[in-house]
């Protein structure tokens, strides 16, 4: 063990960690949007929407993320869409996350008592307002712990995008250790950085939960 190796590599690893963080955040945001849309469509969009949503969820939950990533990366150019690795990565993360998030919201919606939307219905609320003002805010509260969990899983899963050449934390660690032959030190440092990021996310989640409970 030579700590000087870690110190020398640290600025590069931190820079790569920033890429990891924002790619993951974009993936999570995309996943949230997809998840909410899929969930609402399955619940209120009729049978066809429910079936389409079901197929989407079983595909993206059932196929390993690595395979999804490679499929998106290699398949899109075949149909004439040339995507940079970064875009393919964010899309893959978002699509995979969306499948899980839609199921998280489905479970949370089942926990909202029926009387909640009935009260709004009886007052004459339009369906869209019942979703945006009554159901989704409550479902979100209920699912905060599961969503934080999903965020942490996704951030770790983002290490997979190293295979398509995005210079995030894992890929950068591989590159550095291949040139200085110090894999143990470098991967140890990378592991600690992942741990620190996820520790911060967990703390953030606890704060959000506590904040929402006061209401």
């Amino acid at each position: 063990m030579k700590f000087s190796v870690i110190i020398d590599a640290f600025p590069y690893l931190l820079g790569a960690a920033v890429t990891t963080i924002w790619v993951s955040l974009l993936g999570v945001l995309l996943g949230q949007v997809i998840g909410v849309v899929v969930c609402v469509a399955r619940q209120s969009g009729g049978r066809a929407a429910d079936i389409a949503g079901g197929v989407y969820v079983s595909f993206f939950r059932g196929v390993p993320l690595l395979i999804q990533l490679l499929l998106i990366y290699y398949m899109l150019p075949l149909v004439g869409i040339d995507v940079p690795p970064l875009v393919a990565s964010i899309a893959a993360l978002g699509l995979a996350s969306g499948a899980y998030v839609s199921e998280i919201y489905r479970g949370a919606l089942n926990a909202v008592p029926h009387g909640q939307s009935e009260a709004a219905l009886a007052l004459g609320f339009p369906g869209s307002s019942i979703w945006t003002r009554i159901l989704l805010p409550q479902a979100f509260r209920i699912s905060v712990p599961a969503l934080v969990n999903e965020l942490i899983l996704l951030l770790k899963a983002s290490s997979l995008i190293s295979v398509v050449g995005v210079a995030e934390l894992t890929r950068t660690s591989q590159t550095i250790s291949a040139s200085n032959y110090r894999p143990l030190e470098i991967y140890l440092a990378a592991g600690i950085i992942y741990l620190a990021i996820n520790g911060a996310l967990a703390l953030f989640g606890t704060l959000v939960e506590r904040r929402l409970q006061q209401a």
Partner: peptide, 10 residues
Amino acid sequence: VFQQFNLWPH
């Protein structure tokens, strides 16, 4: 007006 009030808790 409902038996369970059905106020919105948030």
